[in-house]
Design a protein around this nucleic acid. Structure first.
Lengths: 232, 232
DNA sequence: GAAATGGTTAATATTTTGTAAAACGTTTGC
DNA sequence: GCAAACGTTTTACAAAATATTAACCATTTC
């Protein structure tokens, strides 16, 4: 799933312009037009990064930043008006991660977003999905979008692969069906949790029995996990 | 297009001297005479490499380096005055890639530039498009803008060739249609992503079946990749 | 101005995905 | 130990999403 950006900006023209470019780059975008709804949406949607205007109605950017930082360390990039004196000290204290001055070059905005995300990458799960994960008789290569079982390529549709990748990225941890719907399908997805079962079934058809050091296990009454048993 | 070098150096004699030699070697050259304008020009021009003096008015070399590294990993070579104690630790932290002490031998400067660029070449798209790429029954010669299939030249329009070249420069990696539009058509291009499909189709008509060690594959729900299967 | 190129649209074909329901297992309480 | 309740697996099917292709037009090139 792609990176989710929350734009908190009251000028709809600017917001839409940024959205346009971000969506073209496969980001998912949400927009809030005032500080209050920005905070609301933030805690509902849990975006991967926030673009935050300073001048905002209801609650200004600094307030929003402080509010978010009370409980969360999601990267925040501040958007500052042309002649606005940016008090970088205040900003740093409040925990903003970068600043971009209007009017901005969209190329730079994209570059900064990537830079900030990269800086945070050790902590974000998302980035982990870029590596190649290797288990006994199983290779998950998200860059190539392919899976090898006993060294042989196995055709696998996107959702199944993403599900496998997610579970395998958190070995031995149980996820409820709803957690999986949130994490693999996306927070805004409202679907039947049976859906997960069906995908697990389809996945199992392809990967089951490949190794006895790992397996996709059902935790009865709870959910599923990718279990690794390492007692060689 | 040739490699673009930005020289940030306040002594006009030195700057012009370097420019002279670089232009003789087919580099394009920009010069900034203080740190502040250096940073400005950098973000406007996006050079391929930066030669950066440490002693500078307005903003010293370290500051400039830090500013650039906030968002960008373009190679930077620091120019250090004769008796300047170079704090290599600081430099490394800030992300400089090499050091040259004044007074320098121009031959050495050129050599170092080439070396640093070579070191970076696997990561930069630009460099990849320069050489001749050879695969089984396929030669992509970007310098001559031509493609050989089984040794025979195949007529191919520029866009198709660029698309093929880009994909082949990153074998086994999936790109979404939007990424391809960005990387092949250019950042500012806003077009329908079906366009990519059509070009892929036209490309395939020309290259399909030429070899079974590589192919232009569709990754369903994601995008396309140039796949190499190396199990000879 | 004819041919080649690049881009768009629409139809057609294909694959994936979600859902409903039946079949199957496990737990629980008596 | 048995039956009801509940959770999971499986199957089948319809709906949705995506890819391919062909046809068309605008623009550029020769």
């Amino acid at each position: 799933m792609s990176t989710h950006v929350l734009i908190i900006e009251d000028d709809p023209n600017i917001a839409e312009l940024i959205r346009l470019y971000l969506e073209k780059d496969d980001f998912r975008v949400s927009i809030a037009s005032d500080g209050k709804s920005g905070v609301d949406i933030f805690f509902k949607a849990h975006p991967d990064i926030v673009l935050l205007d300073i001048m905002l109605p209801e609650l200004d950017g600094w307030e929003v930043c402080r509010e978010i930082r009370k409980t969360d360390k999601t990267p925040i990039i501040m958007l500052t008006a042309k002649d606005e004196t940016v008090d970088k000290v205040t900003g740093l204290e409040l925990g903003a991660d970068d600043y971009i001055s209007k009017p901005f070059d969209m190329k730079e905005v994209i570059a900064r977003i990537h830079a900030v995300l990269r800086r945070f990458s050790p902590e974000t799960e998302e980035n982990a999905s870029d590596d190649i994960k290797t288990f006994d008789n199983l290779v998950i290569n998200m860059a190539a979008y392919e899976v090898l079982i006993r060294g042989k390529k196995v055709e696998m549709p996107p959702k199944e692969l993403e599900l496998l990748n997610f579970l395998a990225s958190h070995p031995n941890r149980v996820f409820t069906r709803n957690q999986l719907l949130d994490d693999v399908w996306g927070f805004e997805y409202f679907g039947d949790s049976r859906t997960v079962d069906v995908h697990v079934k389809r996945l199992r058809e392809k990967i089951d029995g490949a190794s006895d050091t790992w397996s996709l296990k059902t935790v009865w009454g709870v959910g599923y996990k990718f279990e690794i048993t390492n007692d060689k």
